[in-house]
């Protein structure tokens, strides 16, 4: 089984090649739209949509939701949501072509699936909070910010990786 996985792993692109293509894609994105890529924006739109559907009055009154609610237009109707749908399909397409489609919980042999899922959920919550605070995640603030040499973009990326390295020791059991 290990062997089979190893063969599969080779299918991944060379990271430099992937980086080169992604760099070109970011240039293209800036060239066409004047803005960069993003991912967490779509999740924010989803949250806004759900809250707006469940408790419209509450959404109107909240200073953060109301920023993204427009009269007669769904909050889902944004560039980033469509882009995120594209990302989902892109991942699916590549996975299908490389024979990687498989519903699994990926985790270190040292932890259980359940633990992994709980950690993933916690990580998501923290990441969601952080992405809102920093006004962008690794794609929006990091990749797109760094392409135009935004100070905030570099700062955020440095903080993400810096924190990661600082605390990675305490999480080694989860991963290695």
């Amino acid at each position: 089984m290990k062997n089979k996985q190893k063969i599969k792993r080779r299918v991944y692109w060379n990271p430099y090649f992937g980086g080169f293509l992604l760099g070109l894609l970011i240039i293209l994105t800036f060239y066409i739209t004047g803005r960069g890529l993003g991912a967490s924006g779509a999740m924010k739109s989803t949250v806004v949509t759900v809250v707006d559907a469940v408790a419209p009055a509450h959404a109107e009154n909240n200073a953060y939701y109301s920023k993204f609610i427009k009269e007669g237009e769904s909050p889902m109707n944004t560039w980033l949501v469509f882009e995120a749908i594209g990302v989902l399909f892109g991942g699916f397409l590549s996975g299908a072509m490389a024979n990687r489609l498989k519903p699994i919980v990926e985790h270190s042999p040292k932890i259980t699936s359940k633990k992994r899922l709980i950690y993933a959920l916690t990580g998501g919550v923290l990441f969601g909070l952080g992405a809102q605070l920093a006004r962008g995640c690794t794609s929006g603030a990091g990749l797109s910010g760094m392409a135009v040499l935004s100070t905030g973009g570099f700062l955020t990326v440095a903080m993400i990786f810096g924190t990661g390295y600082l605390i990675s020791y305490f999480f080694r059991k989860n991963w290695i």
Binding site: G41, F68, A131, Q132, S139, G140
Partner: peptide, 10 residues
């Protein structure tokens, strides 16, 4: 010059 307003999130 269409300055885009900051759209939170990324």
């Amino acid at each position: 010059k269409k300055k885009r307003v900051a759209e939170g999130g990324c």
